[in-house]
């Protein structure tokens, strides 16, 4: 199903962007985690400041409780929301939408699709590259996060909740990747959709943040996929929840399947 010639070319085409995003995200993770020691050092002053900083601002920044900031894992998880959940999702959606659509708006589709390669093979090869890039970004960011936790830790690093939040982050990125693919195949007149993808992820993130600040945990917040992730990493019952994994994987598969069906019948207009 995957055409290795196209897969190799497509991977090479995207490798520079992958390296750039990985370096930026890893640098942000490592730099932010390096501040953790200072946070611990000035714990009293920070606690004092917290009395005047609204809790809403803390929640908007990803902290569930005031004390989360003084836990290595809590500190990491709050930053992970911005760096990997938000930025990683933007990367995933932009990558997977453009990987298909750019052939059309850059007018190379006519060349590619006159080769002896089926639409299924083009779709599978390009999605495989997108998936591999998302996996690599998550792996690199996860390893950087783990190393920075060890380097700047204040106590023992608990591996299990770290792995769980890393897995959820990957699943969220995967979902946005699949959303990008369906956006790409539904565009009739090909044009870049980068701004639309960035905007859509930000809107979902905004909805999630609002629901966190206002404490609304009902239907409204669940409009956003960010809300489907369990972010209470410091709670004792924090664990792999099958329904969340099934939800993300199921939706990603469903969106990809639907996208393939549309792509098979799509008029390639350039």
């Amino acid at each position: 199903m995957i055409n290795i010639i196209l897969f190799r070319m497509e991977f090479r085409r995207n490798v520079r962007s992958l390296v750039l995003w990985s370096v930026i995200i890893c640098a942000l993770i490592f730099f932010t985690m390096s501040l953790f020691r200072s946070v611990l050092q000035y714990q009293q002053q920070i606690m004092g400041m917290m009395k005047i900083v609204p809790m809403a601002a803390m929640k908007a920044r990803g902290f569930g409780n005031i004390t989360d900031i003084f836990s290595g894992l809590g500190f990491y998880a709050a930053n992970n929301i911005v760096y990997m959940m938000l930025l990683g999702s933007i990367y995933s959606m932009v990558l997977s939408s453009n990987i298909l659509l750019k052939e059309e708006y850059l007018k190379t589709a006519e060349y590619l699709m006159s080769r002896p390669i089926s639409r299924d093979e083009i779709f599978a090869s390009k999605l495989a590259v997108a998936l591999l890039n998302i996996v690599i970004l998550n792996l690199v960011a996860g390893i950087t996060g783990f190393i920075s936790l060890i380097v700047f830790r204040s106590g023992d690093v608990v591996i299990r909740p770290f792995l769980i939040i890393t897995m959820y982050t990957f699943l969220l990125n995967l979902f946005f990747g699949a959303l990008g693919v369906i956006v790409a195949v539904m565009i009739r007149r090909p044009r870049p959709v980068t701004f639309f993808c960035v905007g859509l992820v930000l809107v979902f993130y905004f909805i999630f943040t609002i629901s966190r600040i206002s404490g609304v945990s009902g239907e409204f917040g669940y409009v956003s996929p960010f809300k489907w992730v369990n972010m209470d990493v410091l709670k004792s019952d924090f664990s792999f929840e099958f329904w969340r994994i099934a939800l993300f994987l199921g939706l990603a598969l469903l969106l990809s399947g639907l996208s393939l069906m549309i792509y098979r019948k799509k008029d390639i207009l350039t």
Partner: peptide, 18 residues
């Protein structure tokens, strides 16, 4: 379509290349 394209050559009127 795939079998056909394996046996033909096509010069498009206005297509870009990589």
């Amino acid at each position: 379509s795939k079998k056909i394209r394996g046996r033909l050559g096509y010069v498009p009127s206005d297509a870009n290349l990589y």
